[in-house]
Design a protein around this nucleic acid. Structure first.
Length: 271
DNA sequence: AAAAGCCCCTGGATGC
DNA sequence: TGCATCCAGGGGCTTT
């Protein structure tokens, strides 16, 4: 479910409210992708000092200097409230604090909650160390982006998904951004010209920023930690529309598979 | 070193 | 209705 916009909307929905809260208890459900990596009870009494985001990871800074990483995987979502219902079968992590309980609901359990000894710890570096640049920040420069693409001998779609050049672009927004930029997904990343890289960079920023602004839309059923549903204001131009007419030129949207993932594009608008 | 494939898991949609 | 099959928004790990 969640790409950068959904993770960011989730972060915004509870970051302020949980900041300054003291951890009272931790409840674990079924195993997630990785073990927590520490004793739950060791968190008791610590304060959540900030909630940040890096790529699709949420980072909860703790007063001990530790970093609690939360990843939503494919099907994860967070809720945060003073009183939550009894944990259901797919509620696999509760962080009970003085300001409310943060709960991870994740049917497929590709998500994770990992306790690390700070940003420079081995565990944090292993998970975050290879991540590319943040697409919505000032550091997402054209020259660096183009240089990053030049080094890769795979399709541009797969480079975007890998997250080593730029983070946060998942399977939906990769297709959408490439449509906006007029670039075929199968184009080798190394063959993208500077001018086209510039268009793609703008397209990525545009589609992600709009999705954040509309509360994580495009998606079937995304809702943030305060229960607000996405507004569906951004209609997908190509994603999930195989065989349907292109909204721009009317020709049928095409679908292909790249690295076990579906890609959608318009063969006329994208060259 | 980079690229390709595998795999974790559950649920919903589709087809017979 | 029941059952099998396919597909799903992620990404680390292993193999080539």
């Amino acid at each position: 479910m969640p790409e950068l916009p959904e993770v960011e909307v989730t972060r915004l929905s509870f970051a302020e409210r949980i900041t300054g809260a003291r951890i009272l208890a931790v409840r674990l459900g079924k195993p997630l992708r990785w073990p927590l990596g520490g004793e739950p009870a060791s968190l008791y009494g610590l304060t959540v000092t900030a909630v940040r985001r890096r790529g699709k990871y949420l980072l909860l800074d703790l007063s001990s200097g530790q970093l609690l990483l939360v990843h939503l995987g494919m099907s994860g979502s967070l809720s945060f409230a003073l009183a939550l219902p009894a944990a259901g079968t797919h509620d696999h992590f509760d962080l009970v604090t003085t300001h409310g309980t943060l709960r991870l609901h994740d049917p497929r359990r590709f998500g994770a909650v990992v306790l690390t000894d700070g940003a420079s710890s081995d565990r944090a570096l292993k998970l975050l160390g290879r991540l590319g640049v943040e697409p919505l920040g000032d550091e997402f420069g054209l020259a660096e982006f183009h240089a990053g693409l030049k080094k890769r001998n795979v399709s541009i779609k797969q480079v975007l998904l890998a997250g080593e050049v730029v983070v946060g672009v998942g399977n939906i927004y990769a297709s959408e951004a490439l449509f906006l930029a007029g670039i075929r997904p199968a184009t080798k990343a190394s063959r993208i010209s500077l001018a086209r890289a510039a268009r793609l960079r703008e397209a990525i920023r545009d589609v992600l920023a709009r999705a954040v602004a509309t509360g994580g839309s495009t998606l079937r059923n995304f809702s943030s930690a305060d229960g607000q549903a996405g507004h569906f204001q951004l209609e997908a131009m190509v994603y999930g529309r195989a065989g349907e007419p292109c909204r721009q030129c009317g020709s049928p949207i095409r679908q292909l598979r790249q690295g076990q993932r579906s890609t959608f594009f318009c063969g006329v608008c994208q060259r």
